[in-house]
Write a protein that binds this DNA or RNA. Structure first.
Lengths: 226, 226
DNA sequence: ATCGTAATCTGACGCTCCGTCAGATATCGA
DNA sequence: TCGATATCTGACGGAGCGTCAGATTACGAT
């Protein structure tokens, strides 16, 4: 709850464990199994109820083994979040690689909405913990959240900046702030899709509304009538 | 984690406690003290680390007393969330009671942004748990979250509907869906203001971007140049 | 194939917190 | 002042935590 310990993945640097030794093949497999079981428990139950003892049992090992790889449940989830963040590159790639002008631009907006919905659906059990922990002030989680959203925001801000240069978007607005609010909208709606359906709002209508907001917010142009 | 138990506040109906008896003056005071201590712990520490034993100690009572009023920590937080939801009326009132046309309309949008920021700032420690629990499928929390946001959404949808009637907003869009995305934007940005400052985005710029999106999204009109 | 060493795992322990009683204490109206 | 009722608590069995020291397993060198 207090402090980090640097990276946890990829860098075969510290990985904690037996007084700082680099884990071998067997060790990495065990670690991965523990992570998968953690993810599974997070999928079916609540964050507050994920217990080390359950993770260990599901992974067919003992609690002591868990502590060989993670200092607590949070740290394990942090590792899951890091895996997730890697997958997030597909969102910013989409913004960068596709056109934003005219009808094609609107299609890009729609595609971004779809991709975001998909991403959130796939990772929501981890994302909700990331959100909570970030809000609680945990810098390790904030960093991951930032890596994930900041890239998309930067890419969108770039599009807005270009629209400004071409006089299609007023110069007085801050591209990063606007991009930030748009990404927020995406993230929040994606996170609460089920809640909207609860209100009787169809996902397809949300998709359209978001794409319109996105298109107008970035390009400054009226979206093509649907 | 599993199931509700009906209401918990105002209705002096069931309130759980000693086999369902209605609490008297002393009892209500104790209950309130426990709630305040829960809120305090939630403010300084993480959700996962809020323990019944700590709440009881801070309230100058025993764990057994806590269980007299709440079946677990979640239920206590649920009661806090209910208190919070009452305060939420000020947001929808603002949307309903102020003008949405012309420059005055833009000012209303700004005011809504400000009020939302303020509300979130005041209740963020409870809101983040509400969000988590809702996402985890807890219907009790979802209901509260819905009460809170749905009112604002309805109010905004009303404004959008009127804009459609007057031909200032295309008829093809779903007012509720658009209002929903806008409220989402508000909620998410308000929840992560600190995160934005972390990125070097000024709150005042966010304020402007949000107000512009809000104004355009509801009225269909270009916001007054700033 | 065998052996020694390093990597990996685990049983067991002391501790904190949980959730529930039965009984003690405080409150209040008559 | 005296019950009756509301409220509180000590105490307990059980679940999980986090940490050892020692057992088990994998693997490269011979």
């Amino acid at each position: 709850m207090t402090e980090p310990s640097a990276s946890t993945e990829v860098t075969p640097d510290d990985l904690r464990a037996v007084d700082g030794r680099v884990p071998g093949r067997r060790g990495r497999a065990t670690r991965q199994r523990l992570l998968e079981c953690t993810a599974d428990l997070l999928r079916v139950g609540t964050y507050r109820d994920v217990k080390v003892i359950d993770i260990a049992r599901d992974a067919g090992t003992s609690p002591a083994t868990f502590y060989q790889y993670f200092s607590d449940v949070e740290t394990a989830i942090l590792a899951l979040a890091e895996e997730m963040a890697l997958d997030g590159a597909r969102l910013s790639a989409l913004v960068r690689d596709r056109p934003w002008r005219g009808r094609k631009g609107y299609e890009t907006a729609v595609a971004l909405v779809d991709e975001t919905f998909d991403f959130w659906d796939q990772h929501r059990h981890v994302l909700r913990v990331v959100d909570l922990a970030t809000d609680e002030g945990d810098q390790r989680f904030r960093q991951i959240r930032t890596r994930l959203l900041h890239e998309v925001t930067l890419a969108l801000a770039d599009v807005i900046g270009r629209a400004q240069d071409e006089g299609r978007q007023p110069g007085g607005i801050d591209p990063m702030a606007t991009a930030g609010t748009l990404v927020s909208m995406l993230a929040h709606v994606a996170a609460h899709l089920y809640g909207f359906e609860f209100w009787g709002i169809r996902t397809r209508d949300l998709r359209q509304s978001m794409a319109r907001q996105l298109y107008w917010g970035t390009t400054g142009q009226k979206p093509p009538s649907t």
